[in-house]
Write a protein that binds this DNA or RNA. Structure first.
Lengths: 117, 117
DNA sequence: TTGACATATTCCTATATGGGTATATCATGC
DNA sequence: GCATGATATACCCATATAGGAATATGTCAA
């Protein structure tokens, strides 16, 4: 079997640095493709292809506006990544060093509160 | 050009779900390879290969203990992922939603006050 | 030394990638 | 309708993958 498709999930889509750059650029607001082309210094077809991958994993949405297509960030698609990686935060954060048990309790409470999304 | 190597950085290494599983398993503490083989139900060579990738990006460390090799999590390698993705947290977190709503209200009130004058 | 256990490496193959380049689609203004 | 601008798709290619299977390496025990 080959590697999983880049469109398999957000983890794979976001492994490509150019696609993270695109998302970072879109964090500033809705943008047409050519803006991204200029901002990233990539060829237009590559940007379109990256945007397609991001769209397929739900990380961006599109809207037609005349002859332009405005892309907009949909950060919710990145939540699974955050959810996974935040469990490891305590392994490098100084804050967690002395407060392990207490924070575990808090985290459990927080998760219970947030479980209704 | 092909896709970036899985060993290029933590983002690429962790895009593979089995490797995330391995890290999750190691979160419980140091483990020999065969423990992971049993826990994940994978063939031994694949586990060794995944561990090599994780080692190359610094996400795990090894230690020889007799004929076993004990692998241990090094979560710090995941910090760049956390750093990147946490910037997007406000896009789905309820806490931030409520803050946004409050700010919206304030802005609307402000505008209403100004138009009264 | 030999055999058994634990792990790593090698070789194979199908598959998808990302960039480059050319071209297709689609909307707009004349 | 036609030229132009904006974007998407198609095609080519070099490359690295993940799993499977076989084998190599290394360590211990008798």
């Amino acid at each position: 079997m080959a590697r999983a498709a880049t469109t398999a999930d957000a983890f794979n889509a976001v492994a490509e640095p150019r696609r993270r750059q695109i998302l970072d650029a879109l964090a500033g607001g809705e943008r047409p493709v050519n803006d991204l082309v200029r901002q990233l210094g990539l060829a237009q077809p590559q940007v379109s292809k990256h945007l397609r991958v991001l769209r397929e994993v739900g990380a961006v949405d599109v809207r037609d506006e005349g002859r332009q297509r405005l892309y907009r960030l949909n950060g919710r698609a990145l939540k699974p990544i955050h959810d996974w990686v935040k469990e490891y935060e305590r392994l490098w954060s100084d804050r967690f060093d002395r407060l392990d048990a207490v924070l575990e309790d808090l985290k459990e409470k927080e998760e219970a509160d947030e479980s209704d999304e």
